[in-house]
């Protein structure tokens, strides 16, 4: 499996966010997106997830052009953003049941990659921020898609749970999946095989039609 982006650019509300971005990711790769605030890390992930349309350029998965093909994107890509998509008044169990129903798959309680067994009957508003993030990340192991798009996944996680996430991603790599992570601190960057993608603001700004 390979994911190739060639000379991508993205426009949001009339402004060019980034331009001329190319990357090539094979199965088993983890790709980190780096860049200063406002350089379009989240935008790139949302673009890959199919929320935002590609302005110019091409994305291909397994040599098939998937630019703006949301049906294929939804079946292969999995996106978790800044927010955890939690409802305050549900219990953790209900929340997971809700997601299981939507994706029509089950959370694997035997493996329990995110250590949720102990807080299953707790209401979401009783959880700490770290616990909420864990519940949010548990969607990863419900859906089991091939390409993971994670936006700042380590926010408010403690060291123990960061290592759980690392383990999960390693398993995912072994299975031949792809992960694209936007993060301030490179949290797995110990091995050199990881791809690091640096986003720079577009140099030649497009002329505004009003000027």
């Amino acid at each position: 499996m390979n994911l190739i982006g060639s000379s991508l650019s993205c426009k949001r509300d009339g402004k060019l966010i980034f331009s001329d971005l190319s990357f090539k990711i094979k199965s088993g790769d983890v790709c980190f997106i780096k860049g200063p605030n406002g350089s379009g890390k989240s935008t790139l992930l949302r673009l890959l997830a199919g929320f935002i349309k590609v302005w110019t350029g091409k994305i291909s998965l397994n040599n098939e052009d998937i630019t703006n093909r949301n049906d294929i994107i939804y079946n292969n890509f999995f996106y978790i953003g800044h927010s955890n998509s939690l409802k305050n008044y549900l219990t953790v169990k209900q929340q997971i049941d809700f997601w299981e129903g939507i994706s029509e798959k089950k959370y694997n309680f035997e493996a329990d990659s995110f250590n949720l067994k102990r807080i299953l009957n707790r209401r979401i508003y009783e959880c700490s921020e770290g616990q909420k993030r864990r519940v949010g990340l548990s969607r990863l192991s419900i859906d089991n898609k091939k390409v993971l798009l994670l936006d700042e996944p380590t926010t408010s996680l403690d060291i123990e749970n960061v290592s759980r996430l690392k383990n999960y991603l390693k398993d995912h790599q072994k299975k031949g999946g792809i992960a694209i992570v936007a993060s301030h601190e490179a949290f797995i960057s110990s091995n050199n095989q990881d791809i690091i993608l640096t986003l720079n603001p577009p140099k030649n700004r497009e002329r505004d039609p009003f000027i």
Partner: peptide, 14 residues
Amino acid sequence: FDDGTLDLYILSNT
């Protein structure tokens, strides 16, 4: 929209 559930709905099969 605020808590991200709408993102999830948009990316789901429905």
